[in-house]
Amino acid sequence: MPPLKRYFITNGQFLITTVAAEIYTVLGSCVSVCLWDKQKKMGGMNHYLMPGALENRSGDPDLGYSSTSMLIRSMLNRGASIENLEAKIFGGCNSWASDQTIFSVGLRNVAVADQLLNNAGIQITARHTGGYSGRKIVFNTGTGKVKMYVLSKSAAEVNEAIYKGFGY
């Protein structure tokens, strides 16, 4: 069997494929929703930076409300059905290592995904969210499985190392 095609997405992007592939990304406070239609073997993943607002109709895919709504709508337009969709949510770390709500972008991003998926009636079958470390995720659209790697250093630790000149 030939290797799967691999696609990298970054914030403000989403990808849907009806053939087996690997979609991967790296997340900090950003969130990715992986949707998989278990009957059609169709998968899609987004990556958004900020939560946005439900009433914002700009269609900006960098905002969670727009990005997740577009992902769901696009999957349904390609023939997926709500009953067969499974969702997995990843990301939303608090890389600033602060518990102040104003900096809790990651937690707010995760809340957007939860709200929209629950409102749509899509079952959330897995999640790995929050914490202080980023993640790399690899979504296999042929199987619906996601491999996740926790990054060893938080964004705050990396920024501090840069500020200190990496010890030089």
Rank of each mutant, 00 (worst) to 15 (best):
T25I: 00
S81Y: 05
T125L: 11
L71A: 04
N84D: 08
G12S: 03
V138K: 08
E22R: 14
I72F: 07
S133N: 15
Q13R: 09
G106E: 01
S69W: 10
R108I: 05
C30A: 15
L54E: 14
F139Y: 10
Q100N: 14
K136Y: 01
N77L: 10
G134N: 07
G44V: 11
K41T: 07
V31W: 02
V105R: 01
L49H: 09
I137H: 03
T125N: 08
L27R: 12
Y24F: 15
V26N: 13
N109W: 03
K88Y: 03
G44L: 12
S32R: 14
L71V: 02
C93S: 13
M70T: 03
S104P: 00
Y132E: 11
I16P: 00
K88F: 02
N119K: 12
G92A: 11
G134D: 06
F8A: 13
N77H: 04
L76C: 11
C93G: 06
V110D: 05
M50Q: 11
A20T: 08
Y7N: 08
Q13W: 08
W36N: 00
E83R: 14
N118I: 01
V110P: 02
T125W: 02
G131M: 15
V112S: 06
N77F: 01
T10F: 09
D37E: 04
S69Y: 10
G59K: 06
V19R: 06
L54D: 12
M45E: 01
P61F: 11
I82Y: 07
L15V: 00
V110W: 03
G52Q: 01
A97N: 15
A20I: 06
L63A: 08
K88H: 06
N84F: 00
R108Y: 04
M42E: 06
G28R: 10
L117S: 01
Q39W: 12
Y24T: 15
